[in-house]
Design a protein around this nucleic acid. Structure first.
Lengths: 208, 208
DNA sequence: TAGATTGTTAATCGATTAACAATC
DNA sequence: TAGATTGTTAATCGATTAACAATC
């Protein structure tokens, strides 16, 4: 068995914000960064920061902290952000367009080869440099490209229908921005990005 | 002391998806819905569903389930989704435009009175029916409107600077879509919506 | 050295899950 | 009635936090 990476979902979710802070610190020319410092910046317990950073395997130096360069590489490596990840996007509405133009995702290895939309007025050209094709061409195009990852930014009402086609075309990982709980066979992963959940939290937070 | 609502963040985050399922069920003309059914639809433990629904205070009937109509009202009431919540939005890029046009938020009480952008080419008109003004007018306009809630969809580099102005203008709740941990005084709430966290989870999910 | 920090092991806390009586 | 379901109390599980030795 290779080294089994054990990391909880909350830990994984915190890593990007660590990376962000560390990057800023690197830009200042610093060579070491302490867990205490990161904790202060993010309002997190330094013990938690140390434990989270532990999953990267980078050794910190007492009194100094963690080597910035090495830590950045290790987090990126752990998240797979140092590798290119080909994908397609379905649904070139405002949210889809936002994701197509989101430089941060691109920097972290997301390479969207093609986008698809139902609306003929949106197809034929490019959005933020990515060609937009008709959903009618989706299945064959995905097979041709050999992509296994898809981003879903379509209206909820079509979500399951489109997901079925994606899976038929060989997609094995779906980043789902609709509020639909997709039914998928074994071996297909779905990561749901739920803005309603966030809005619910926001609302509760406001009225107390 | 009024009835103290105790609900964990995970429970609150699940409520919108319950609401969604229940609404679909209502549309089929059903009068009662069981926790078991909701759990099946969402791949959640029915015990968890029952406990979550318990926070709304709605009494279920053994053998039948929860009264659909009453449950919908109760969840909406708990989340404050039956009330109008005035807000402004800053940053009319793709993401900002997406939120301005997001009908679901509107249906759940979010009323965006005005949007602001730095770019003169974007100001003067409307986006999805919401007037877009210059950020230069932001402070006075917010004071005039008396709004206390803001949505932040600007590039990270301006996040803190803009947040400071918002707070000076009386904003007390910020829905923050940037990846910046905002520094705010006591009494100001920030709900951070972090797409990087979701992307991190997505990436980890893909390579195992 | 003294002091700050790491990293590990133990304690606490809270959310999820299990058990089960009550009810229709 | 039998069976499905609620709702509560207890048990389990896992994440966060505390304690502390090791290190530079």
């Amino acid at each position: 068995m290779t080294k089994q990476k054990i990391a909880s979902a909350p830990s994984i979710r915190r890593l990007p914000s660590y990376l962000h802070i560390i990057r800023l610190f690197q830009r200042e020319g610093e060579e070491y960064i302490s867990g205490t410092f990161i904790g202060q910046k993010l309002n997190l317990d330094p013990i938690q920061v140390r434990k989270d950073l532990g999953i990267t395997g980078v050794a910190g130096k007492p009194k100094k902290g963690y080597p910035v360069e090495e830590l950045i590489s290790a987090i990126e490596c752990f998240l797979g952000w140092n590798r290119t990840r080909n994908a397609v996007l379905v649904g070139v509405g405002n949210l889809g367009s936002a994701l197509l133009g989101y430089q941060e995702l691109k920097r972290h290895g997301l390479n969207i080869l093609a986008a698809f939309d139902k609306n003929p007025e949106k197809t034929g050209g490019t959005v933020h440099g990515t060609p937009v094709l008709s959903v009618d061409a989706m299945e064959t195009e995905i097979l041709r490209l050999g992509v296994t990852t898809a981003i879903l930014t379509i209206p909820s009402s079509f979500a399951q229908e489109i997901a079925d086609i994606l899976i038929k075309a060989g997609i094995r990982g779906i980043w789902n921005f609709t509020n639909v709980k997709l039914k998928v066979p074994d071996g297909v992963m779905v990561q749901k990005e739920d803005i309603s959940s966030g809005y619910a939290m926001f609302c509760i937070m406001l009225h107390d």
